[in-house]
């Protein structure tokens, strides 16, 4: 978890920040829940910890993937040393655009 904090502070780019925080925080919360299940020694606590581990391992990568796709579509600038960019031709030109509420425009 401390490594995730250092990563979100030091990484030069949104996408690198995403990948360093998602994995570290998922593993951190999972291991802490496992430690709580071992330390408290109760059946209900163990069941809750297993349920929590399953939920977190299921939901956090989905949220990270959605955020990364939304950021890429919105045209957030990449780090200048990023080597491979397979989706370059689908990337919108120009400055990052702002999201807006309400009905989607059909263009």
């Amino acid at each position: 978890m401390l490594l995730a904090g250092v990563g979100i502070c030091r990484m030069p780019d949104l996408f690198l920040r995403l990948q360093t925080t998602a994995k570290a925080s998922t593993l951190g919360v999972g291991l802490l829940l496992g430690a709580a299940a071992v330390a408290l020694e109760d059946v209900s606590v163990t069941a809750r910890a297993l349920l929590g581990i399953a939920f977190i391992f299921a939901i956090t990568p989905v949220a990270t993937q959605l955020i990364a796709r939304a950021a890429f579509r919105a045209g957030i600038p990449l780090w200048e040393h990023t080597g491979q960019n397979d989706l370059e031709e689908q990337r919108p030109r120009g400055a990052p655009r702002e999201p807006h509420l309400g009905q989607r425009e059909t263009d």
Binding site: V29, G52, F55, I56, I59, T60, V62, A63, T64, L66, I67, R69, A70, A71, R73, A74, P92, R97, E98, P99, H100, L101, G102, R104, E105, D107
Partner: peptide, 22 residues
């Protein structure tokens, strides 16, 4: 933990909602 991850998903849906954001 669950509410925060769901909130992140909802905000990602909101970020998709710009012009041409299908």
């Amino acid at each position: 933990a669950i509410i925060s991850s769901l909130g992140t998903i909802v905000i990602a849906r909101y970020l998709f909602s710009g012009p041409g954001g299908q």
